[in-house]
Write a protein that binds this DNA or RNA. Structure first.
Lengths: 199, 199
DNA sequence: CAGCTGACAGATATTGAATTCTGTCAGCTG
DNA sequence: CAGCTGACAGAATTCAATATCTGTCAGCTG
């Protein structure tokens, strides 16, 4: 049962934790389960993570960072005008969240729980990362004369807030309803109209 | 203890229910409590409301309608241009929710629970009412040449969605943080810019 | 006889005793 | 001696027995 043991590393613990969470769900996943999956005693897990909460936080961060990295590519895409990048970025964020929620509802529910329990540190950093990417796009747009915005970072926050419904897990159950894509397109259209510089 | 009994009416039951909910909270408020507060047997309550869920739904509707009525006055205010009414309306919605959340946190939490449990019927009607008011304002703006919008009702939905963060109870805990008013103003500014007709 | 009561069956919630889990640490092992 | 183990205390969770609540209805009352 216990798999081969090529030295116990934080990374291997995180992988095992993700697997245990997927199997048992957030309510029943225990540190002992994680240790068992790795073929070690649970004391060893505590050598790498001071508390169970810290372990869950690290796993959550990993998960959120995967989305951040994906979007960073779009934010920094070369040769595209700011408006296209902004549209693509917002669409990619929505698509990524929707895909996660649809493809593996159990795991998505698990991470929804994790993000509410770790709210303060990890999630707000994640949001800061994302609005940072948005700020870069808006700033480019202002520089190229495509957008008007007194303060790009303020505009970026406003964009992120305005689209909450399309990326906050709290609204996930609405993402499968018929008209969502139209609602999303209408909102993005309105926001871009507000951002565009006047002729 | 039992108060004077001037015939048992649905309205009196709703008042008593609200009081019981305020006292005991949503988890512990029972139909028997409501009956006791009215000095009747709980069987009598079931004469007016088929189930406990129906009673809670009716109380929730009452609560939501109070906000709807308040905003209807602004939506229909005579002699004000559409942009001012739209600004006022959105500000009034945010202010009303924030006031409720701040003045009586327990009751607000109670109704937050009620709205999630009765989600489908009552709440979606409430949202339909509100976006209906928004649609009327946008339509007026289009008619007067102040706004551009292919379909006012689509624009109204987008406006309502975009401002979710400032009226959905789910975000209530963020309404007391320092920068919220600025965030709100920035978002409304961006949305109005998007709505305004070009010169 | 319209409106109310209160006893009742089944569903739901509460309680506390027993189990399981978290986090520590003295000592084992390679 | 760095890294791991496993027994342990206190915290948290489960589970089953017990109590309370919901919804009904036959019959009482004004």
């Amino acid at each position: 049962m216990p798999p081969t043991s090529p030295t116990l590393t934080a990374e291997r613990i995180l992988e095992a934790t993700e697997e245990v969470l997927r199997r048992h769900g957030p309510a029943k996943a225990t540190v002992v389960d994680v240790a068992r999956a790795l073929g070690v005693s649970h004391g060893s897990v505590y050598r790498h993570f001071r508390t169970k909460a810290a372990l869950r936080e690290a796993v959550t961060k990993r998960w959120l960072d995967r989305t951040t990295d994906l979007l960073a590519e779009i934010a920094g895409a070369p040769g595209l005008d700011a408006e296209t990048r902004l549209r693509d970025w917002l669409a990619a964020l929505f698509a990524a969240k929707r895909r996660k929620a649809f493809d593996d509802p159990e795991l998505f529910a698990t991470y929804s729980v994790l993000t509410t329990e770790t709210a303060e540190t990890v999630v707000s950093e994640h949001i800061a990362d994302l609005t940072g990417q948005l700020t870069a796009i808006v700033r480019d747009g202002v520089a190229s004369g495509a957008f008007t915005a007194a303060d790009p970072s303020v505009a970026a926050r406003a964009l992120f807030r305005a689209t909450d419904r399309f990326h906050d897990p709290h609204y996930a159950r609405e993402w499968e309803q018929p008209g969502v894509q139209d609602d999303f397109d209408a909102l993005v259209g309105l926001l871009l109209r507000g951002l565009r510089a006047r002729a």
